[in-house]
């Protein structure tokens, strides 16, 4: 199946075509002293973070550190208990939610799939924020859906039921929905889980293309530090609900950093291909052997 890249799409639509926002995203997303929790449990304990517009960045951290919770609060899925999430300087909770959905898209982890729905119908729901109460489907929506299907390589699956897709295909269908939403900011909660290595790279390449070609601001929660380093302009490390570090991957990701945030001994080298940091965990029993040797 031939797939268009964003470059060829732009070349075909010099006037902007279905996506007017071929300029860099100007929308600013910022967290100020945000506290978020479930019940009595405070998960995010005062986090500050200004997302650089038109950048691609990752939120990393150990399981249970609150990185997904923080992403949800950025996307207004969870209300901040204190502090604020600001979109273009205004509290996101005070903005009309539909207006926010035209600027900011969120792909949550494992969203619900209605029984029997096809890929194309799923992707078309991304157009919801662009419709009024009585507004109907228009050719612009068709174009957006078709483009999203093509970019994710899902055109040939458009009449397939989402239930019957593999994990990787299903993830691409959800990403297509987010693309059809055509937002300037896109937040993704672990977009590469369930995917094999090839698909992981494919998804991240696609997001990087989107970031470069359209200037879409991309924020994702990632588990793999080396992949995060490879694809991010910045990395935010969350530990125990606070920001442990934020900055360029090459500056943030060090052996000391991996030890303090993940409690893991590692070797941080340089990827010969991408010239980004690569984290190689040290083998624990080797480490023990080395220590014993040092002792004797």
């Amino acid at each position: 199946m031939a797939r268009k890249t964003l470059d060829t799409l732009q070349a075909e639509n010099p006037q902007g075509g279905p996506h007017e926002n071929s300029h860099d995203s100007q929308h600013r997303l910022e967290a100020r002293n945000v506290e978020v929790g479930y019940g009595d449990n405070l998960v995010i304990k005062g986090l500050n973070c200004a997302i650089p517009p038109a950048s691609m960045g990752s939120i990393v951290g150990p399981n249970g550190c609150g990185k997904s919770t923080f992403l949800k609060s950025l996307a207004r899925l969870l209300p901040a208990r204190s502090g604020q999430v600001l979109l273009d300087g205004q509290a996101i909770s005070s903005l009309p939610t539909k207006r926010v959905a035209q600027i900011l898209g969120i792909l949550p982890q494992a969203p619900a799939v209605p029984e029997g729905i096809t890929v194309e119908e799923l992707v078309s729901r991304g157009r919801h924020p662009h419709h009024g109460i009585f507004g109907g489907w228009n050719p612009q929506d068709d174009a957006a859906v078709d483009e999203a299907l093509e970019l994710t390589g899902m055109t040939s699956f458009s009449s397939t039921e989402v239930d019957s897709l593999s994990g990787g295909q299903r993830q691409r269908a959800w990403i297509a929905l987010s693309l059809a939403q055509q937002t300037d900011i896109l937040l993704l909660d672990e977009p590469t889980t369930y995917l094999d290595m090839t698909y992981q790279l494919e998804v991240l390449d696609l997001l990087a293309e989107l970031n470069v070609a359209r200037g879409t601001t991309i924020v994702m929660v990632l588990h793999d530090l080396s992949l995060a380093a490879r694809y991010s302009d910045w990395i935010l490390a969350v530990k125990d609900g606070t920001a442990a570090a934020m900055g360029k991957p090459s500056e943030v990701i060090t052996e000391e950093f991996v030890r303090s945030v993940f409690n893991l001994e590692s070797h941080v080298g340089m990827d010969p291909v991408t010239h980004t940091p690569v984290v190689t965990p040290l083998e624990r029993h080797c480490l023990a052997a080395a220590r014993n040797q040092a002792k004797s």
Binding site: L77, T97, A101, Q102, P108, P114
Partner: peptide
């Protein structure tokens, strides 16, 4: 029918529906 579109989007779960601008 006025809230019908929201009914449709709600089938995709609370997080997705919120993200797509449904109250």
């Amino acid at each position: 029918t006025v809230v019908g579109k929201s009914l449709d989007i709600l089938r995709f779960g609370t997080p997705m529906a919120t993200g797509l601008g449904v109250k």
